[in-house]
């Protein structure tokens, strides 16, 4: 990741701030607070669904494209979901060329692991003709600015984009042995995805003896190890990954999981509320996009 070398004294300042009895991070947050987030869905017109998320300085654009394809032989009766993450060199010059590839694959693996669970997203509904035709959802995540906590931001963006996704209705006509698919022309004749149980990633960074959520870039530099978990609205954990060079005590992993579960539930419910609120505000709203 875009790493600046911070000085010993700066790191000490952050570390002591978290160890305090009443933790005060450098921007005054407590250990379990997220920074301000802003979200907009339907920003890219030529996708099936899209969202843009800004979490403090982190800027993420997600597009979902539904295409017809052949289901995988292992799961002939369900659709597919494919993640692709692109780290734009606009975010940091280090991403130029192939510089961002490692981070991009890391994010997409964690995302696909989170969604690789039948309870997260009903992929069976994406199947049209078993073994022959299904919808494949291509989810493209574009990283436009790095301000720390990329994994959480990416997952929130993905969930919002899936909420916004509209897949055209399909009717199957059977003539003798031939199956014929008819795609609806009506732009309002669409299916939506049920995202009520899809997960958001919560990253807990271990700094000193304590853990924090939503670490800023500076805090990420002080962090020894972090735990990423996909948490659904019900509080179930769909994926878990430890990252970083430090090791974690089993007890602290348990603590972190408890915190992550609690925060994940809050995160999921507030995200869903915001998305519903945005939808209610109807078509009158103008897309703001990248104009501030």
């Amino acid at each position: 990741m875009a790493d600046v070398n911070y000085s010993e004294a700066e790191k000490t300042f952050i570390l002591h701030g978290i160890q305090d009895k009443f933790p005060c991070r450098e921007d005054g947050r407590g250990c379990e607070d997220y920074r301000h987030m802003e979200i907009e869905t339907g920003v890219v017109s030529n996708t099936s669904g899209s969202a843009r998320l800004r979490l403090a300085n982190t800027d993420i654009l997600v597009g979902v494209k539904a295409e017809l394809g052949v289901p995988s032989p292992e799961k002939p009766d369900s659709g597919c979901i494919e993640f692709f993450v692109d780290c734009s060199a606009n975010a940091t010059p280090e991403f130029e060329g192939r510089g961002g590839e490692e981070l991009a694959t890391e994010i997409s693996t964690v995302l696909s692991r989170c969604y690789d669970n039948s309870g997260c997203l009903d992929l069976k509904s994406l199947c049209i003709i078993p073994k022959q035709q299904c919808w494949i959802l291509y989810i493209d995540v574009l990283l436009l600015e790095c301000g720390g906590n990329l994994f959480d931001a990416a997952s929130i963006g993905v969930k919002a984009a899936l909420y916004n996704t509209r897949i055209p209705n399909v009717t199957v006509n059977q003539e003798d042995d031939e199956m014929e698919i008819e795609l609806s022309d009506d732009p309002y004749d669409v299916n939506r995805l049920d995202i009520s149980s899809s997960p958001c990633i919560v990253t807990l960074s271990k700094i000193g003896h304590y853990h924090v959520v939503d670490a800023s870039q500076k805090e990420e530099a002080c962090c020894l190890a972090r735990l990423m978990m996909g948490v659904t609205a019900k509080g179930t954990i769909s994926a878990l990954k430890k990252e970083g060079w430090g090791s974690l005590n089993p007890e602290s992993i348990f603590d972190m999981m408890e915190t992550g579960k609690k925060i994940g539930q809050v995160l999921n419910t507030s995200l869903l509320n915001v998305l519903e609120e945005e939808e209610k505000s109807g078509n009158k709203r103008k897309t703001v996009g990248f104009l501030k």
Partner: peptide
């Protein structure tokens, strides 16, 4: 207490 502060852009003042 965990706080998560999400808004949608349209709600901006």
């Amino acid at each position: 207490m965990a706080t998560v502060d999400i808004r949608f852009v349209g709600a901006r003042g």
